[in-house]
Amino acid sequence: MLIVFLVSILYSCGSSSRVTDNAQSQRLEELVSEKHFEIRSDQAMPMATASLNSISDAGLFPPGSSAGQISLIGNPNYLKVTGDSVAIYLPYFGERQMGGGYNHDGPGIKLEGIPDEMEITKDEQKQRYIVQIEMKKATESFDIEVTLFPNMNSIISVNSSQRFPIRYSGTVQPIPSEDK
């Protein structure tokens, strides 16, 4: 009798999490189908190079950060999709591989406009969305892959023609009404 009681409690706890996951998944599906969402990142994960390790060893990163994982809490950043337009502002931590210096926008990644290519696909098996974005700015080109998970978490992977790769983790949400 006790075993049946424990099994029923465990089963009911599991089913309530599926209901929550289903509601979040449905909310994500609405945001993606409307192409009207924003991602705020709380962690940057640059490629840990010898230079970044030196900066980390010198204590120049925020508390709790390392060369491979940097806290973005308190730093403005976003990736917004509004219809066919994309606006991106992400702080960049890493090294340039070649090419020109940083522009007047600073060392961050700042892009705005209609991408050269944007494709949104749904991975039915894993219930997540993959957004592929290709954009150019001056002589630099960016390949950006955004993975949106049903629990509203996200991973942004940025590959550039002039910088080492970097990833960001954060959350997806509706764009606030004042930004529409």
Results as ranks from 00 to 15, higher is better:
Q127L: 09
S51D: 12
S51F: 13
P150Y: 13
A58G: 08
Y78T: 04
T82N: 09
E112A: 10
L79N: 00
I55K: 00
M118W: 07
S157N: 12
Y102I: 03
H104P: 03
G99R: 09
T147I: 10
P176M: 05
D57V: 01
T139W: 07
A23N: 15
T49G: 06
D84I: 04
A48D: 07
I156G: 05
E124H: 10
T20W: 11
E112W: 08
I114N: 09
G108P: 10
N77P: 09
G106K: 07
M1Q: 08
F37Y: 15
Q24P: 01
I156R: 00
I175L: 03
N153S: 12
S177E: 10
N103L: 05
G74K: 05
S33D: 09
F61A: 07
Q24L: 14
F164W: 12
Q162R: 07
M152V: 00
V7C: 07
Q43Y: 12
L111V: 02
C13F: 13
S154I: 04
S8G: 08
S141G: 01
V7M: 11
T147Y: 01
L60K: 02
I70N: 07
P107M: 06
K122A: 11
I130E: 14
Y89M: 13
S25Q: 08
V32F: 06
S12R: 11
V4E: 10
V172Q: 08
E38S: 12
T171H: 09
G68Q: 13
P91A: 03
R40S: 14
G108Q: 06
S71N: 14
G170D: 09
Y78P: 02
F5N: 09
I166P: 01
S51A: 14
V172F: 05
T139Y: 07
E145M: 08
Q132Y: 09
S12K: 12
L6M: 11
I39Q: 07
I9G: 04
S161R: 08
S141R: 01
M98L: 00
R40H: 11
E140S: 04
